[in-house]
Design a protein around this nucleic acid. Structure first.
Lengths: 106, 106
DNA sequence: ATAATTAATCAACTTTTTTTGATGAATTAA
DNA sequence: TTAATTCATCAAAAAAAGTTGATTAATTAT
């Protein structure tokens, strides 16, 4: 049983890097809460100031965690004037998680 | 859209802890390689000394990472004489990963 | 009984990750 | 133009995770 298969034509080592990065991005309570809040939001996106309120976290801490999720291509940033909105990259999420799991977490 | 649903009747906070722990256990190249090697093995289990050889890692380092996977209930340890065998807890894995993803990683 | 093998655990150390408060750039409002 | 808001980035500090080599216990082989 071969376990680690290519992810979009990556070699085995790059695939390991990919999964490590994806799991790592999701392996944090704050970041899971960010995903959860965005998923719950009416437009499926939130700006930093929304999250600041909802999660009661300071801005620089939020930026740090948002960056991690963007770097893993799990969140997509969108600038609207002074506001930076973030939405979930469902395609990327679904590479790693089942729809069922996806529904439970996000 | 409610994202974080109960995992086996856990409340939301406990569910977050659960996923954080699971993703964290999987968010490491060495641990992914361990899973991969066990999945490839004929009996679907390997002892520490097998892994030592296959992954060229020192014993104490392996024990450290194996413990992380056991603590997350992703690996199940089985003692046979002096040998400690580890096998994958597929049930637990499937709580978090889709069969498709599962096939690609493990 | 003695020696060798297997593997968990420990403490010291190193490395990585996260937090914190401050600064500055860009945009909007007055 | 000036003041206020939004948010990324930075450096320093704190916290967490991972590594290393040694010790120990249990089992197996001689």
């Amino acid at each position: 049983m071969e376990l680690i298969k290519n992810v979009n034509g990556l070699n085995e080592d790059a695939a390991l890097d990919f999964y490590e990065k994806m799991f790592n991005a999701l392996a944090d309570k704050i970041r899971l809460k960010i995903m959860n809040e965005i998923g719950k939001s009416p437009n499926m996106n939130l700006c930093v100031c929304d999250l600041e309120e909802k999660l009661e976290l300071q801005q620089s801490k939020l930026s740090y965690h948002l960056k991690k999720l963007v770097d893993a291509n799990i969140l997509i940033p969108e600038k609207h004037g002074t506001w930076n909105y973030y939405r979930i990259n469902e395609e990327q999420i679904q590479v790693v998680l089942s729809e069922d799991t996806c529904c439970k977490i996000f």
